[in-house]
C-alpha cells in the first residue's frame, strides 16, 4: 500500500493506479440508523456533491450504463411500451434512471423535452435513515454520502416509507433495499462516481459541494443570459440540502421535471411515527407492564369465598330438583 486515497474533487481525472488505503470509512460515520449515541467522528471530511445540469443532458443514458457496469447489476430486459424511460422505473438493479417529460412552455408556446437523471439525492437529513429500524443498515458519512449496508438490511421497506423522493427499491431476490451509493466504493479510493465519469457532455460533474455550487452559479448565469430567467439550483433546504444537486432551467417549477418535489422534507407523519409515538408508546407499555407485574405479585387477588361454593351447590341442587 502506498498511503491513503485522497478524497476525489473531480470525476474527470484518471484514478491513481497504485493500491491505496480507503480514504474514508466507519470512523467517518455521522449517522447510523437505529443507533442513538454514535460518538462524533474525530475529523470532518469535505462535503462532496454531484451536480446534474439538466440543461446539458442529451438523454444518452451513458450514466445508466456506467452505473449498471460499475455496480455489476443486471437489470431485467424490459419491454418497449413507446416511451424513452428504460427501465420504466428505478429497480433494485437500476439505481439511476433518465426520466423524460414533454412540457409546453406557456411563455414561448414551445414544446420542451425535459430530461432528468433520477436517483438518490443523498440528503443531508435522510428520511430513509430516520425511518430505518435495523441498526447500522443505513449510514451517513461526514462527506455527505448516504449508504445502505446490506448485511444489516432486513428488507422491511421503511426506507421507502421515509424517503421524500421515492428512491429505495427492495429486491424480490435477496429482500434487501438498494439505491445509488454515490459510488462510495469509488470515492473511497479517490475516484468520482461512474455516472459522472461516463457523461459525454459533462452534464454530470462531481467534486466538493462548494465547488459544485460555484459551478452551478456559473451555469445559471449562462442560462439566464440565454433567456432562462428562472434558471436555478435545486439543493432543497427541507432535507438540509442534498449531495446530489440539479441545475434546472425552470427552477421555479421543479414539478415539470417528472415530478421532482417542490419542497421535499421528511413527512410530518414519519416524524411523528418515529418521534412521539415511540417515546410515548414505550413509556405507556413500560408503565403498564411494570404496574401489572407489581400488582399481580403483591395484591391479594380477587378470591372466591367458601360460602360462595356452598351457595353455588345449593343453587345447582335446587334447580336440578325441579
Amino acid at each position: 500500500m502506498s498511503g491513503t486515497a485522497p478524497q476525489p474533487t473531480t470525476a474527470a481525472a484518471n484514478p491513481p493506479v497504485q493500491p491505496m488505503e480507503a480514504g474514508f470509512g466507519t470512523r467517518d460515520l455521522v449517522r447510523v440508523s437505529a443507533t442513538a449515541d454514535l460518538p462524533a467522528p474525530d475529523r470532518q471530511l469535505t462535503k462532496l456533491a454531484k451536480l446534474i445540469d439538466v440543461s446539458k443532458c442529451i438523454g444518452c443514458k451513458a450514466c445508466q450504463s456506467a452505473c449498471v457496469e460499475w455496480n455489476d447489476t443486471t437489470p431485467e430486459i424490459g419491454e418497449n411500451v413507446g416511451v424513452y424511460e428504460n427501465p420504466h422505473d428505478l429497480t433494485p438493479d437500476m439505481f439511476t434512471l433518465m426520466r423524460f417529460s414533454e412540457w409546453e412552455n406557456p411563455a414561448t408556446n414551445e414544446l420542451e423535452w425535459l430530461i432528468r437523471k433520477d436517483g438518490c439525492m443523498h440528503c443531508e437529513d435522510p428520511g430513509c435513515l430516520k425511518a430505518c429500524p435495523a441498526p447500522g443498515a443505513i449510514v451517513q458519512y461526514s462527506n455527505g454520502i448516504v449508504d445502505f449496508i446490506h448485511d444489516n438490511c432486513i428488507g422491511c421497506g421503511y426506507c421507502v416509507t421515509g424517503c421524500p423522493f421515492d428512491i429505495p427499491r427492495i429486491s424480490k431476490t435477496d429482500h434487501k433495499s438498494y439505491k445509488c451509493t454515490l459510488c462510495s466504493d469509488r470515492v473511497a479510493v479517490g475516484q468520482g462516481p461512474a455516472c459522472a465519469k461516463a457523461c459525454p457532455t459533462k452534464a454530470i460533474t462531481f467534486g466538493t459541494k462548494d465547488d459544485m455550487l460555484a459551478l452551478a452559479d456559473d451555469r445559471i448565469e449562462d442560462l439566464k443570459s440565454r433567456g432562462y430567467d428562472n434558471a436555478g439550483v435545486y439543493d432543497p433546504e427541507g432535507v438540509g440540502g442534498t449531495h446530489v444537486i440539479y441545475v434546472l432551467h425552470h427552477a421555479d417549477k421543479p414539478g415539470i421535471y417528472s415530478d421532482l418535489p417542490e419542497n421535499p422534507r421528511i413527512s410530518p407523519i414519519v416524524e411523528g411515527w418515529k418521534g412521539v409515538t415511540k417515546t410515548a408508546g414505550m413509556a405507556a407499555m413500560g408503565v403498564a407492564a411494570a404496574g401489572a407485574l407489581l400488582m399481580g405479585l403483591f395484591s391479594r387477588g380477587n378470591k372466591v369465598e367458601a360460602e360462595e361454593e356452598v351457595a353455588a351447590e345449593r343453587l345447582v341442587r335446587d334447580r336440578e330438583d325441579i
Partner: peptide, 15 residues
C-alpha cells in the same frame, strides 16, 4: 370453573 367462581362473578350465567 368452580361453582363458587361462577356464583361470585357470573351468577346469571350460572343460573
Amino acid at each position: 370453573v368452580t361453582g363458587g367462581w361462577a356464583w361470585r362473578h357470573h351468577r346469571k350465567w350460572l343460573r
